[in-house]
Amino acid sequence: MTDWKREGGCRCGQVRFKVSAAPLVTMACHCTGCQKMSSSAFSLSAAIPAEGFEVTQGEPVIGGLHGASKHYFCPHCMSWMFTRPEGMDWFVNLRSPLLDDTGGMAPFIETWTSEKLPFAQTGAPHSYEALPPMEAYEGLMKEYVEWTGK
């Protein structure tokens, strides 16, 4: 959907972005890496088509593990903002709580539940011990559109 528009930014406001395409799917990741990087029980994200995401102010820096997948942070407040996963340049994994309007951003999928903290609950309709199999994503994205009514 191309008329889906939102803006957001880091905690201090130094880095801002705009989103002009609806999420492909929303997620909560329970892996210990996300727990440590977000200092929380899980990280929340929305897979945004790459052409529908733009940094409009500031210059995010690469942080996290500095590996093949690039994790981008605000250079001032160090908010983890988005990830560009290796080999999947068609989407940006945006930390959805950074949107100014977080309405309708509940997680549809939760991943890495094999590492989740016992008290962490998301209410996501789909749950995976690791990641969903690659062949499941097309169906999950179609079901997500129906779930959100977009």
Rank of each mutant, 00 (worst) to 15 (best):
G139K: 15
F42M: 10
G63A: 08
Q121G: 08
C74T: 04
P132K: 03
S43D: 10
G149V: 09
E146D: 13
P132V: 08
A47H: 09
K142D: 14
F17G: 05
S43T: 14
D3F: 10
E7R: 08
M27N: 04
H76F: 13
W112A: 06
F17P: 01
K70Q: 12
D89F: 09
A21W: 04
R95C: 08
K70S: 11
R6Q: 11
W4A: 04
S39G: 14
Q35Y: 06
E59I: 09
M78I: 13
G149F: 08
G67H: 04
K150S: 13
D89V: 09
C31N: 01
L98D: 02
T2E: 15
P107C: 01
F42Y: 14
A41Y: 06
T122H: 02
M37W: 15
P132I: 01
L24E: 03
V145T: 14
K36F: 08
R6L: 08
R16N: 07
K150E: 13
H126C: 04
R84Q: 14
L99W: 03
S114R: 13
R6C: 05
T32F: 11
W80E: 06
C34K: 00
C34I: 02
Y128F: 14
I109F: 02
L98Q: 09
V55R: 02
H126D: 07
C77W: 02
V15Y: 03
F119D: 05
K142G: 12
D89S: 14
I62T: 14
F42T: 02
K70L: 08
G58W: 07
T122W: 00
E54N: 04
E146Y: 14
H71Y: 11
P49L: 03
C77P: 06
A124R: 00
K5S: 12
P132Q: 09
H66P: 01
E7Q: 14
P49T: 05
T102Y: 06
A130N: 15
R16S: 02
M81T: 03
E59A: 12
E143N: 15
M105E: 06
L65V: 11
Y72K: 04
A106Y: 05
C77Y: 04
A106L: 11
P75L: 07
T83L: 13
I109A: 02
F53Y: 04
C34A: 06
R16A: 05
Y137H: 13
G64K: 01
G9E: 02
D101P: 06
N93T: 15
S69E: 01
G13C: 07
P85E: 10
A50R: 11
E146H: 13
Q57K: 12
A41K: 09
S45M: 10
G123Y: 02
L94C: 07
G67S: 05
D101N: 12
D101C: 08
K70E: 11
S38A: 15
R11C: 13
H76Y: 11
A130C: 12
A130M: 13
P97N: 07
A120R: 00
S45K: 02
